[in-house]
Write a protein that binds this DNA or RNA. Structure first.
Lengths: 213, 213
DNA sequence: GTCTATATAGGGATAGAC
DNA sequence: GTCTATCCCTATATAGAC
């Protein structure tokens, strides 16, 4: 994180744009509104960014790197493999709670809300990092034989849903998903699920269902 | 499902619109494109729907009701409570796989991609139905004391992510999420997780973590 | 570097013939 | 009920003064 005060106009534009892109999406965001909130004329935006699409790309790059650092750091931490997985989950949840807009932008991207012709980058490398950790644990018989890739993607899906869609589709879930209470509840639930799914070692887990129904 | 052949123009418009709204979103969908794919002039759309917004609402209503029927039917089925939960999960996954666009539209809605001023309807009643089932099971000591609401929303989030975002953000996940293989894999994983989280009765589950880290 | 003014295009919506 | 033609607004982007 850079200095949080006395930012230049370019940084303020990026910040406001990130908020709008998260809240309204690429197609729904008006340069007009960004300029207004920054407190500048619309034409001035084109002094810093040649087009709306380039502004979009700049916002994306601006938010990249945090996730990767969080993941590698957590996997290298001390503790049992299960503790490290939970450490990773909790760190990532905090990251998401701190920057909900970034996750929303990624989700929108995956749904196709991006500049025309924009190639959505994949995140296979990052996912593979965690999947590899789980697989190694399974080979060492410390994790049960669950579907490792599905487990990782499932956690991402749960957390993403808790912080973006759930508050809207099921208001009974929580008021402000970024509140300390909500963050704590998500952490507790996800780590609880991880314990239930990854504890018990290499033998068939607690309640693995017998066969196809 | 109505007759699938010799549909009227209105039905064809609804069908094509559903596809576009799922794929491009409300703001990204051009009436021009809908008309083109239907094989009709743009102005003709206004003979059937007074505005883009009304077309959007019609598409939504057209896809409502299936989910509710699926849920109530599964919860009233035979079997142990856990079997009924898994039955519900599998039925719902099939429904999602059969109509991925509908889920995408709902997700987009929750992200705010809807007509200006549109009030996204909540689904609290439907969620509460399943949560109630879990809570009763917990009071009867057949389910462990997990966070029931979080469990339900977590499953929704996982499945939603598997079928919409995961194929784009992590292409290693699967090629076509609606393929029989992919559907089977999702079913297996989610019911596996349900077994691990809901089996074992009312005592503290397998690996419930001791306290806050 | 920021402004006012304007060019240009695209898309939602309407009019009216057939 | 479907078409052609057109209106009109909005939004991106540019030109050029200060």
């Amino acid at each position: 994180m850079g200095p949080s005060i006395a930012r230049g106009t370019r940084e303020r534009i990026l910040e406001v744009a990130e908020a709008f892109l998260g809240e309204r999406g690429y197609n729904g965001t008006r340069l007009h509104h960004i300029a207004e909130r920054v407190g500048v004329q619309k034409a001035s935006l084109f002094h810093y960014f040649p087009s709306k699409e380039e502004l979009y790309r700049a916002v994306l790059e601006h938010g990249v790197g945090d996730s990767e650092r969080t993941i590698t750091r957590a996997l290298e931490s001390r503790g049992t493999p299960l503790e490290r997985v939970c450490q990773l989950v909790e760190s990532w949840i905090e990251l998401v709670a701190a920057h909900p807009q970034r996750l929303k932008i990624l989700l929108r991207q995956s749904l196709g809300d991006a500049p025309p012709g924009y190639q959505t980058p994949d995140h296979d490398r990052l996912v593979a990092l965690v999947v590899g950790f789980l697989t190694e644990g399974q080979e060492a018989k410390v994790f049960p034989p669950v579907d490792a890739l599905a487990t990782v993607l499932g956690v991402i899906g749960m957390v993403a849903f808790f912080f973006t869609s759930a508050p809207v589709l099921a208001p009974s879930w929580c008021g402000d998903p970024s509140s300390a209470d909500a963050v704590e509840r998500v952490k507790r639930h996800v780590t609880d699920v991880m314990h239930r799914c990854l504890a018990g070692g290499g033998e068939a887990g607690t309640g693995r269902r017998p066969a196809v129904a």
